[in-house]
Nucleic acid binder design. Structure first.
Lengths: 218, 218
DNA sequence: GCAGAAAAGTGCGTGCACGCAAGTTTGCGT
DNA sequence: ACGCAAACTTGCGTGCACGCACTTTTCTGC
């Protein structure tokens, strides 16, 4: 019940932040305004978000992390780890329920917001770590951590590239779509990691067999 | 010549930051003090570093990025890409010319400094991108970017783990060395990425052959 | 050399992040 | 039902990051 209230104010704050930023432009929004709109003190606002930009992008990115982790877990074991991870991520970035057109415009326009948006990609790391570790059989958590961190890094690179070309196309008049859509970029950037993901899965399988049949023979 | 002066003041600032932090403890150092010690205004200080922690860790990490990139470039092509990258990184993190014992103690003790130190690992990303792209033959820069980002992420994970156990061993009395030395951790965390690095190298080789011998046959 | 441009440094003002030490609400044991 | 303890909120104070306008330094073409 305490948790519910916390989550509620958190969402109220980020929603208010996004709304005010859209209404007045992001430079005309003080954190006092956001706090006042929700009815809390500005000090409380800072207990939830450590920067103004964080609150705004949180409204767009809420829970994407959890959805990606769940999506990875849902894929059957028959579709290799690499395919499961890549498709789960592309799916969750393709279904853009929340990111309204204008919100994305706002984010791509302001450098500070772009940076905050890019930073949110690293939020998928911990959920992904758990999901991958589960699929690898919970042996060797370090491998899962490294793979999750690498996947998050690849996603970050894709988003950076997407923001770069998107922003450029806005200023240049919308004529160029040099590097394609975000899903395409995600696939492109994640592809080089597939060998590592599948190799880890292979090793995990072997490890499992070795434990099940612990003879010293070759 | 302008560049020389800039670099000089930059180093003077970070050196002064580290020295003062060691002398008085990091909480008793104002940025005004650092600026005054070097003889510039505090505003100029902020033109070089965007946080107080950054200046301190910069004194420890200066140019590690460039050294890693050069080390990768120096390995002969006969040692696969994965081996070249891994050994180059381990080498540069093993030769600890600058990080004096006490400086590392200082960093591991303060959470804010630990975080800043971890963030510096991402600085190797751009130099590494260039080095890897060069080895892959400058075709497909995206792959190089993803691989470099992944390697940087793995290094970050290793440093995080190292800091975690190191800090714990300080508070616990120095009796435990649970997860080994930093070089060992680096090898452990980079190992899962080897398949991806070598696969990319393989693909680059094929691509090069296909271009050299552009027939449609199989 | 010199004039003007480009770049680096500086002073000021503003909004913000965050530690601290209260006050207030919520949850739980008895 | 009551009271206590933990969690959440708040006001205050401080140091800091950074935009802006301005001065000083350094670089270039003539």
């Amino acid at each position: 019940m305490r948790e519910q209230k916390k989550q509620a104010t958190r969402e109220a704050l980020s929603a208010a932040a996004l709304r005010l930023a859209l209404e007045r432009g992001p430079d005309n929004v003080r954190v006092d305004d956001i706090a006042e709109a929700v009815g809390v003190s500005s000090r409380t606002y800072n207990n939830y978000f450590s920067s103004r930009e964080q609150a705004i992008v949180a409204a767009v990115n809420s829970e994407r992390e959890a959805r990606i982790a769940a999506a990875v877990a849902d894929r059957p074991d028959s579709v290799g780890l690499a395919a499961a991870v890549i498709e789960a991520i592309v799916d969750q970035y393709t279904a853009p329920g929340v990111p309204s057109r204008e919100a994305l415009l706002l984010i791509t326009a302001r450098p500070a917001l772009r940076e905050a948006f890019v930073d949110t990609t690293s939020a998928i790391e911990h959920p992904l770590t758990d999901a991958i570790a589960r699929r690898l059989g919970d042996i060797d958590p370090n491998t899962a951590r490294v793979l999750a961190a690498s996947v998050a890094a690849a996603v970050r690179v894709a988003v950076e590239q997407w923001l770069r070309t998107t922003a450029a196309s806005f200023t240049a008049g919308g004529l160029v779509v040099p590097s394609g859509s975000l899903p395409d970029l995600l696939r492109t950037m994640l592809a080089p990691l597939a060998p590592a993901l599948d190799a880890a899965e292979q090793r995990a399988r072997q490890e499992r067999c070795r434990v099940t049949t612990p003879d010293g023979s070759k």
